[in-house]
């Protein structure tokens, strides 16, 4: 009976040790990998330090897209219709990237205040607005009429 108890205790201790290592690792990894989300207005108000990895959600301002003819570089402006953030990206844009379309960019601000985007995300459903973009427009009070996060029927 006693040996049996001891074994059970051993197994429980083993599981507990495994779990605590895992929890420690998990929390460490979480703390290292959180990308905070900002709206163009927050960026314009200087809430973001240069070099900090963040995400920005907004609309691509109409008429702002300039793509180079001899390279993959693209410049455009992400906006919540209250403030603008200039974005620079080198690479191929997603299928649904268009002017007036909601997008989310990942990257960091450089010292000149230009956002160097390492990734540009656009939704696959053109009527769908991602919660980030919606939140940005809501915060700026510029959400278009009826632009809920569900497609119109």
């Amino acid at each position: 009976m006693k040996a049996h108890r001891r074994k059970r205790l051993g197994v429980i201790l083993f599981i507990a040790a495994g779990l605590s290592v895992a929890v420690g690792l998990t929390l460490y990894a979480l703390s290292q990998n959180i990308d905070l989300f900002y709206t163009p207005t927050q960026v314009a108000q200087g809430e973001v330090n240069a070099g900090q990895r963040i995400r920005i959600g907004g609309m691509v301002r109409e008429g702002s897209v300039q793509s180079a003819t001899d390279s993959l570089a693209v410049r455009f402006v992400a906006t919540d219709y209250a403030n603008d953030v200039p974005i620079y990206h080198e690479g191929i844009l997603p299928d649904l990237f268009r002017e007036g379309q909601g997008i989310v960019v990942e990257g960091s601000l450089d010292n000149a205040g230009v956002f160097q985007a390492s990734r540009v995300l656009a939704k696959h459903d053109e009527n769908y607005m991602s919660p980030e973009v919606k939140a940005a427009l809501d915060a700026a009070g510029t959400a278009p009429e009826g632009a809920a996060t569900r497609p119109g029927t």
Binding site: L25, N33, D35, L36, A135
Partner: peptide, 14 residues
């Protein structure tokens, strides 16, 4: 009330 995302690096690390 802040929006965040957890990227692939977290999952890969673990």
């Amino acid at each position: 009330d802040d929006l965040i995302s957890i990227g692939p690096p977290y999952f890969n690390t673990i």
